[in-house]
């Protein structure tokens, strides 16, 4: 298992299942021409679900071409934030721009890959049949059949399920079905991958391989990845972190910056430090004496 030490980085010598192709020069998405434009930009983003305000006036950006980790305890609003970015969440107010368009814009549907927390695949189809169908929706027409076949084979190889390609999804283990769901999101050329807890329930070897795959995708395809997790040791593998708690963003920084600023040696203890600090700040605000509880990592008070 991963220990929670700062050096728990992806192992340097690890190899992922690689398709035999790879001679082609990676084509850079057009978005890289203007590195200043973030992949996701939110201003005063608020989401209401029933009587509850799940996300409160969030301001943040997700930079392009990097892996941004979305971390926080269960129920803090990670999934709702991801659904808002993908455009499936109702009652979103404020500004939310994704790849230069308002979230949910029809042109974004081919440019975003989205994996829900529960695997959303057809249990009564084989892995290949599942992917064939979603590929036909993304890239329809008889003329695209060869390209689709190539993409499907590659996506299955990416998630290391080539030997199971003809197994029914319903007969797979939970972790394998999760990976089928991930493979669907890898079809086509998503510029933004939104992955809701993609490594839950996977063994350490697979988790490492998947994180290596995520880094490959970010580096060679120039894609932006937003990955949620409530396992803090995965935070060390991200380029940037958004720490969430109770519908608010507690911190937005690199893992290193987080550790140094809070004086903690792991992201986990940095997170706990920030949570305590936020609770403290809320308490002092209630009693009227505003403490200097904020630091440069954009810590916010819990109440407004």
């Amino acid at each position: 298992m991963m220990n929670s030490k700062p050096e728990s980085r992806p192992p340097g010598e690890a190899t992922t299942q690689a398709p035999p192709v790879g001679t082609t020069e990676p084509t850079e998405p057009s978005g890289l021409a203007e590195p200043s434009a973030p992949a996701v930009r939110a201003e005063k983003l608020t989401v209401v679900r029933g009587p509850r305000t799940v996300l409160r006036t969030l301001d943040f950006t997700v930079p392009r071409g990097q892996i941004t980790g979305l971390l926080g305890p269960s129920g803090c609003g990670k999934s709702t934030l991801m659904r808002a970015i993908v455009g499936t969440q109702d009652k979103v107010t404020g500004t939310l721009d994704v790849l230069g368009h308002p979230a949910g814009h029809p042109t974004l549907r081919t440019r975003i890959g989205y994996v829900t927390q529960a695997p959303s695949v057809y249990d009564d189809l084989t892995i290949r049949q599942n992917l064939d169908y979603f590929a036909a929706i993304l890239d329809p027409g008889r003329a695209a059949a060869d390209r689709r076949h190539e993409n499907v084979t590659r996506a299955i190889a990416d998630v290391d399920l080539t030997t199971h390609a003809d197994a029914l999804a319903g007969n797979l283990s939970g972790g394998q079905r999760n990976r089928v769901s991930l493979a669907v999101a890898l079809l086509g050329t998503p510029e933004l991958l939104v992955l809701d807890e993609p490594t839950v329930g996977l063994d350490p070897v697979l988790r490492r391989d998947l994180w290596n795959l995520f880094h490959d995708i970010a580096a060679t395809r120039g894609a932006t990845l937003l990955i949620s997790s409530h396992v803090m040791d995965e935070a060390e593998r991200c380029h940037r972190l958004l720490l969430m708690r109770e519908g608010e963003i507690l911190a937005d920084a690199t893992p290193e910056a987080l550790r140094t600023r809070t004086g903690a040696d792991t992201v986990e203890s940095a997170f706990l430090h920030l949570v305590d600090e936020a609770t403290q700040a809320a308490r002092t605000k209630e009693t009227g004496t505003q403490g200097s509880g904020t630091n440069e990592t954009r810590t916010k008070e819990t109440t407004r």
Partner: peptide, 9 residues
């Protein structure tokens, strides 16, 4: 470029 992740068609 690493050779691991091929550019999709």
């Amino acid at each position: 470029s690493t050779t691991a992740a091929a550019t999709p068609a």
